[in-house]
Amino acid sequence: MAAHRHHPQAGLRPPRHAVDPRARRWWTVQALLTLSGPLLLTAVALLVLALLFFPGALPWLGPLLLVVLVLPALGYLLVMPRLRYRVHAWELGESSVYTASGWYRQRRRIAPLSRVQTVDTTRGPLQQAFGLATVTVTTASTAGAVRIAGLSDADARLLAERVADAARLIPGDAS
């Protein structure tokens, strides 16, 4: 959990703790399953079809597929997990919980512990495979839910406990 090398954003320093390094692999697999994989498959299918039935179309179809499907797919696959890993971070402060997330559009969210309603820990099948977990801290407002994805199991358990404890200790109205 090294300190983050990141410029201050919106006058806020970045949260102290990075997420688990294995999150990079998790995001890569996610990218493959959701966006990059389907794009690459489409490109391959179109190429095979063109080879079989319209060989004449290859000179223009090849570059077109490369620019429209293959390059974006590879770019997303390679760039997104790295950027995400640089951005995603979390910190449990004295009175608030603070997270940073996103890769292109970046988001920093701060919710006071006095407003915490529930702390949920979820593990999807993919996350389980990588030993990761997501902790969601909810407040009464749907625009105020703090979600930290890509924590190691141990960190997640510890964080959930500490948030729950802190929320109990700090008096406040969770409405």
């Binding site: 919106a10 407002s141 749907t142 105020g144």
Partner: peptide, 29 residues
Amino acid sequence: QAWTFTDTPFGRRAGLVTATAAVAGGEDG
């Protein structure tokens, strides 16, 4: 209930950020 600060690379270069105040009610954010 909470504050959120959102920006994009373009916004960062221009020195702009969108701040969202979360409340329990109405549009929520």
